[in-house]
Design a binder for these strands. Structure first.
Lengths: 140, 140
DNA sequence: TATTGTTATACTCTATAACTATA
DNA sequence: TATAGTTATAGAGTATAACAATA
């Protein structure tokens, strides 16, 4: 593949991903602000300290304190003392948090499924392959 | 294709697009805040009124007034009176605005091209097909 | 009277700096 | 002395309500 067509693939694919992302955000509106959903997302299947969560979200520590406060008040996240290091806290998703996250995902995925509704079996197979490729390169 | 695998494709593809989108935003940092870039983007190849731009960005009219003020001060957007309707303004990209937009796109696309660097010819062809499919369904 | 855009005001999310507690 | 987290304060971005100008 030529350099020119790599460039144009990169441009077009980036735009397509951003369009999907943008429309998911706008059309599959959640009951929670995006940054709170995003924070919850990071706590799926694992516990993190506030510092780790701030780093994952590329946000300052004080910002994350506020976000976490809000999520704790809503009962979506539990904040406990760290067993070994008294300076740290440990954040985990509560059952309510898991439920909210599941519901938000559901709305977004329903929207996405609607988008793909009219495609043929072959076209969906192409998208499946592409999805796997994207996830593969995103690991790096 | 079964309903179950459509659902799982929708979920995985949505996540992949959002991951790309997020990493583009985080790693290909622009000199302009995202909402300003997004506003400029809408003015490519066309002129819009502030109201139209607000609607396109799903943002309130006063918010868009502030954003536009900022872009006008930076010399990236020109705001002129509407020729026919005295209530409206007309927004256009200035040459400086076009330059900024081109530069932002360049950085993001370079990042994206880097992501795709290691893929084979066949894998890239799959992504090209998938990109076209995505753009096709996004038209609706 | 309805519409377009702006101004006034308030709320949320963000950041940097200062502070507290622990290592 | 360094690190994790919080509190204090300020700066963007957003929204709703009120206003001015035009249709």
């Amino acid at each position: 593949m030529s350099n020119a067509s790599l460039t144009s693939l990169a441009n077009d694919l980036r735009h397509a991903c951003q369009r999907v992302s943008r429309r998911v955000r706008f059309e599959a509106t959640a009951e929670l602000p995006p940054h709170q959903v995003s924070a919850l997302w990071n706590l799926q299947h694992k516990t993190l300290t506030p510092g780790e969560l701030a780093e994952a979200e590329r946000v300052s520590a004080p910002s994350m304190t506020k976000t976490v406060n809000c999520l704790v008040e809503k009962g979506l996240v539990a904040r406990a003392d760290h067993p070994d290091d008294g300076r740290c806290k440990v954040l985990t998703l509560t059952p309510a948090g898991e439920t909210v996250l599941r519901e938000v995902g559901q709305v977004r995925n329903d929207w996405m499924a609607g988008l793909l509704q009219g495609l043929s079996k072959e076209e969906r197979a192409v998208l499946r392959q592409a999805t796997d490729l994207l996830n593969q390169v995103l690991e790096n």
